[in-house]
């Protein structure tokens, strides 16, 4: 039983990261109807920026905040510079540009900071929380920070004018434009937020998986799986999906011997395909009906 609880908690901790990535993916999907395949590499790049700041002697939380701000601005700039010119291009062009960005971020990180694996510090003490043996303090911290971030985002979308304008721009760009919402900038804002959320997820997972240019490939896949399981157009669903995927992944890895650690990525693959085929709208997403 202890093992079971331990694995569920560990799954929730990883799930917190997947939820973060899934949320970032959904933020952009809602706004432009595209999956950002570069989300993982953007988060990885942000984490490297944090690492560089920490190496330069900045205290952890200052570097944390600075990275989030830089990532936000970076995401904003990406939308304005790279994606605005092709906003009406077909879906394939978008996918190709996403893949291009993925390749650029991945190799630039290796080029600037080298491909060697680097340890990344955790802001949380290494002593177990309240002397428990079930879950590490960093894991609790991961869940905690993710939940705080989600609460902030919820408040932002629910109670601020900008949040409302962003929701309007995503739901119905034409009407939003008519009532004076600057739809283009709302998109850019969405990109900025997604980049910032990704940066937080990257900095939280880096102490667990270590920092290297390819660290996010698997995590992005789980993030996508979370977004799909929860419903690609539902932020709350994405978070739920992320946690679910974390727990499912850990339990299957522990209790099904032939899956173990080796086939964990395939679990995400199967999850994505099964959910897309059986219930494309996910747990909490809305079915999209298109008129032909």
């Amino acid at each position: 039983m202890d093992l079971f609880i331990q694995q569920v908690l560990a799954g929730l901790a990883n799930g917190a990261i997947y939820a973060g990535v899934a949320l970032a993916v959904v933020m952009i999907y809602q706004a432009i109807d595209h999956f950002n395949f570069a989300q993982g590499e953007m988060a990885m790049f942000s984490t490297y920026i944090a690492w560089a700041m920490l190496n330069g002697g900045l205290p952890y939380w200052l570097a944390f905040v600075a990275t989030v701000v830089v990532s936000f601005l970076g995401g904003l700039a990406l939308e304005r510079i790279v994606f605005k010119p092709i906003q009406n291009a077909p879906a394939l062009s978008h996918v190709i540009v996403f893949i291009g960005l993925l390749a650029i971020f991945n190799s630039m990180a290796g080029f600037i900071w080298e491909f060697t694996i680097k340890p990344f510090p955790s802001p949380f003490p290494s002593a177990p929380l309240f002397g428990n043996t079930l879950i590490g303090t960093h894991q609790v911290g991961m869940i905690g920070v993710t939940l705080i971030m989600l609460a902030l985002i919820w408040v932002f979308f629910r109670y601020t004018d900008t949040g409302l304008a962003m929701r309007a721009a995503a739901a119905n760009p034409d009407s939003a434009r008519l009532v004076g919402v600057r739809v283009g900038w709302m998109l850019a804002l969405g990109w900025g937020l997604a980049a910032a959320i990704g940066a937080v997820a990257g900095m939280l997972i880096a102490p667990v998986v270590f920092l290297e240019p390819n660290m996010m490939a698997g995590i992005l896949l789980y993030g996508f799986a979370g977004a799909i399981v929860g419903g690609a157009n539902s932020p709350a669903g994405a978070v739920l999906g992320g946690f679910l995927v974390g727990v499912i992944e850990n339990l299957l890895g522990t209790f099904v011997p032939w899956i173990g650690n080796e086939l964990k990525l395939s679990v995400a693959l199967v999850l994505i395909i099964v959910v897309l085929v059986v219930r494309p709208s996910g747990l909490m997403g809305q079915r999209v009906v298109s008129r032909v």
């Binding site: 109807d33 595209h34 999956f35 395949f37 879906a91 394939l92 996918v95 490939a217 698997g218 896949l221 996508f224 799986a225 799909i228 032939w258 080796e262 086939l263 964990k264 990525l265 395939s266 995400a268 693959l269 994505i272 395909i273 897309l276 085929v277 494309p280």
Partner: peptide, 29 residues
């Protein structure tokens, strides 16, 4: 199954396939 997946979702499913492939090839069994 990909028939049911339009455009982007197909890109996503095939992305998952590509990421999972090296792990499948290393499988112990």
């Amino acid at each position: 199954p990909a028939l049911r997946l339009e455009g982007l979702y197909l890109a996503l499913a095939t992305f998952a396939l590509a990421v999972a492939t090296p792990q499948l090839l290393k499988y112990k069994a």
